[in-house]
Design a protein around this nucleic acid. Sequence first.
DNA 1: GCGCAAAAAATCGTATACAATTTGACCACT
DNA 2: AGTGGTCAAATTGTATACGATTTTTTGCGC
Lengths: 234, 234
Amino acid sequence: MKTAAVPSDDQIDISTQSIRDTIRDAIVDRRLAPGTKLSEADVGALFNVSRTLVRAALQALAYEGLVNVEKNRGAFVAYPSPEEARQIFATRRLIEPGILREAAKHMGPSHLQHLRQLLMEEGRLMAERGQTARRAEIKASGDFHLMLASMTGNAVMQRFMDELVARSSLVIALYGQSAISSCGHQEHDDIVTAIENGDLDRACHLMIHHIDHIEADLDMRENKGSDLREAFGL
Amino acid sequence: MKTAAVPSDDQIDISTQSIRDTIRDAIVDRRLAPGTKLSEADVGALFNVSRTLVRAALQALAYEGLVNVEKNRGAFVAYPSPEEARQIFATRRLIEPGILREAAKHMGPSHLQHLRQLLMEEGRLMAERGQTARRAEIKASGDFHLMLASMTGNAVMQRFMDELVARSSLVIALYGQSAISSCGHQEHDDIVTAIENGDLDRACHLMIHHIDHIEADLDMRENKGSDLREAFGL
DNA sequence: GCGCAAAAAATCGTATACAATTTGACCACT
DNA sequence: AGTGGTCAAATTGTATACGATTTTTTGCGC
């Protein structure tokens, strides 16, 4: 029963932050289905820590919008409503063009190379098959936007984008149709090209359309989503 | 002892959220000076709760950027560096025009009236003297921006603006020179007028200049601010 | 067999207890 | 007097304990 054989016999001091990051990765990668209950005792048992640390991690995740905590009932992996999803993408449309311009200001040749490198990795993943590859693809797609944010040198914007990308990943995993990401990759490429050419207006234009396309590919009909599924126990 | 009859004698169930809000108000109003240590035991004693709840509140505030938590040392009221301050205002310049346009989309006559009402209250406070009035003035000035955010109907933007306004208030309290706010009030008024006239371009323009003016009024020389003072035990 | 009430179990909310780390003081020593 | 080191006090980090609330189960009457 205590077969924790894999990483090493005993765990090596897992702190609140690691717990939070691990759970977040699991949520964003959709290894944890939306609506799943995250019992404090269960999670604590998995990480071999007390409920105290688990609670702290769950509260932080609640602040990021990745889990919902209901008083006296527990924490659940967030199940973003279509309305929430729209708000998330509306916010991205609002701030990402600005981030793009700000990032471009501070961008040098090495930064552009990093972006190209990321795109290559993204393309490589796209070619592969299987759920693992698809998860990595979604993740890489988000990393492109995060890298732009990091290039602004603005920690506040970076944190906002962290949250937006994480929640977007959750939404895409929930409502996404699938074939879309290929388009997304090409659009990332076009955006970088526009930046390289110094045509920021075009880059922003492309960025907005890119976000539009991501959102347009979602199938946010309620049946797939809201209460029914959760009511049936998963 | 169980006479919960009157809500005054004993405390009336102070939850984590109330603690967080109370501390935040105190920070934003600058009743708690930046750099002040927030000892878990002391705060807990003040609210008559255990350290558990205080810790939760402090962690949440740390996430909002209003307190810094240093491992094994404790929580301190944030002391935003000039660099942080610039990033905060850069972020506001980036998103507030968008919020303005988004809010204008959903705005009806009643919304405009609410804005006007807020401005009147702001003007009334401006006329008064004393530190209390000045605090209320800073708060009211922030409320204007928050009300615009709430009018977008977008909870994500609203949360972002909550954080930005709170941190801005802290920065203004720290580095602000004083006489400025009068200008700010007039600028708020002009923005509303532009919205009423349907001239959104002008409103956005005014908004950006307004944020510029707020930032320009700050005196962010390091001596007043960063490490020295904190190093000297305050 | 079905529905409902009451008890039992499970889970969360909060407080307290104990371990680990930091901070400050005191004292010996150069 | 100044410096370094060790110990004590205070503070945070984490776990555990206990009460409150919710959920499930049980048992009874119909």
